[in-house]
Amino acid sequence: MKKTGFLYDKRYLQHLTGAYHPETSERLTAILKGIQEADFYSSIINIEAKPADIETIETVHTKEYIKRFKQACLNHESIFECPDNQICSDSYDIALLAVGGVLTAADMIMEGRLNNAFCAIRPPGHHAEIDRGMGFCYFNNVAIAAKHLQRKWNIKKVGIIDIDVHHGNGTEHIFEKDPSVFYYSIHEHPSFAYPGTGRDFDIGNDAGAGFTKNSPVLPGRGIEEYKKLFMQDCIPEFEKFKPEVIITSTGFDAHEDDEMSRIQLSTKGFSWLAKQIVNLADTYCQSRLLSVLEGGYSIKRLPELARNHIKILLNS
């Protein structure tokens, strides 16, 4: 059994998104419930969240953007820059706490106290651009974690695997010219799904050309297409790239019971994906795997999806 960490903090529930918004605190409550009910619950190691410092956030986001977000919260605004981004006065602090928790998990992995970790955080991050919040995302948790691993732990090559059903435009753009971070995403085809990016011919730019890979999937195709594309597009690229750490943008919104997509993955399909990622981490990264929650909106399915995910991380 691996040393698997679990990041959760009840303060993550304080990021309030108002009525009729899918990215709610109930998502985390459901995930926590699913994990607490698991027979392996006593085996997982809890990670305590602490706020990230601004300097770390600035490794990805502009000062002006960070200031705008902070000010919007101080002004008690309910929307930040686009209607999708519903905020409350605590959102800025909670977003810092989300990043900080992920960085603590990353440190614990690098210190050898953990093999891997699942970070049940909100707000999510992979749509957040350098200077723009979008798609319920403010700080790009995964991108900041990748930079942190490089700066603090001298990691040369970070592999990011994004299985959220929506393409991680923010993460891709942040690293599109960077050959030290390989970004792979499998998602619903951008002609049919938010945010409209992540086409198979987007492969990175300049020095980063060839270090981005996208597998867009047509609606309704389900696990068979996912299996085919993941084996064909991700595995060989990661074999070539040989990352030292893998970070995953773990979205559960490709599930057949999730109203945010039409991909139709089953719960078993998610387990298959998680196993492949754990195998990659075992093969190339001394099992170092940092799994960070992004989307996933089926309150009914989140408990089992998160439970199965951690079970696979534990290898139990």
Partner: peptide, 14 residues
């Protein structure tokens, strides 16, 4: 043949 019009537009531009 499963590409979309949007794919084709962006590809021809790129």
């Amino acid at each position: 043949s499963e590409g979309t019009i949007q794919d084709a537009l962006l590809l021809t531009q790129k």
